[in-house]
């Protein structure tokens, strides 16, 4: 176990205009994965070091790129400036891995410019994932405007690949 810098996580949050204040001693890097631990879990993790998963999973680094967890997106969601709210149909299609059409967007907050990362929210205020704006939201009138990068449907895709019956 190594005590890691929270830098990749804080850098990721900044993509959305959010600032995270993670207590550095409680952010732990295990292999390529980052976790946020409570003080009691941190003590336990130090005592019995050979664990696989602990506390709140924040994300992983692969080939130098940071891949966030949904827990991290939820933490960022409260502060993110860049966010869009989509209608039910667009929300469902997004969760199924599809991109977002201009027609499905109900609200835009923060930057509307091409190339910017934005969180995607349902009309219930739930963060469903994030994407990258591929056409200026101000100018585009229809068609794909946000490219899906990560959505909560990922859990379903993971479940399908490691199907275990629960009893």
């Amino acid at each position: 176990m190594k005590v890691a810098m929270a830098k990749p996580i804080e850098d990721f949050a900044r993509l959305f205009g959010a600032k995270l204040n993670l207590e550095k001693g409680l952010v732990v890097k295990k292999n390529d994965k980052f976790f946020l631990l409570s003080p009691s879990l941190e003590r336990l993790a130090r005592k019995c070091g050979d664990w696989l998963f602990a506390g709140t999973y924040l994300g992983r680094v692969e080939n130098g790129r940071f891949f966030p967890s949904f827990s991290l997106l939820s933490m960022i969601a409260d502060q993110a400036q860049n966010r869009v709210v989509v209608d039910d149909k667009a929300a469902w299609l997004f969760v199924c891995g599809r991109d977002i059409f201009k027609e499905g967007i109900l609200e835009v907050h923060g930057s509307k410019n091409k190339g910017i990362y934005t969180l995607v929210f349902s009309r219930h205020g739930e963060c469903l994932g994030f994407g990258r704006i591929v056409r200026d939201l101000e100018k585009a009138e229809s068609g794909v405007v946000i490219k899906n990068i990560l959505d909560v449907g990922d859990f379903l895709r993971r479940e399908r690949s490691t199907r275990i019956s629960e009893i």
């Binding site: 998963f53 709140t56 827990s71």
Partner: peptide, 17 residues
């Protein structure tokens, strides 16, 4: 599968060995 469940259900107090 356990790790996926913990992440999906936002469990924060668990350590897995």
């Amino acid at each position: 599968a356990l790790a996926n469940q913990l992440e999906r259900c936002r469990v924060k107090n668990t350590i897995v060995y």
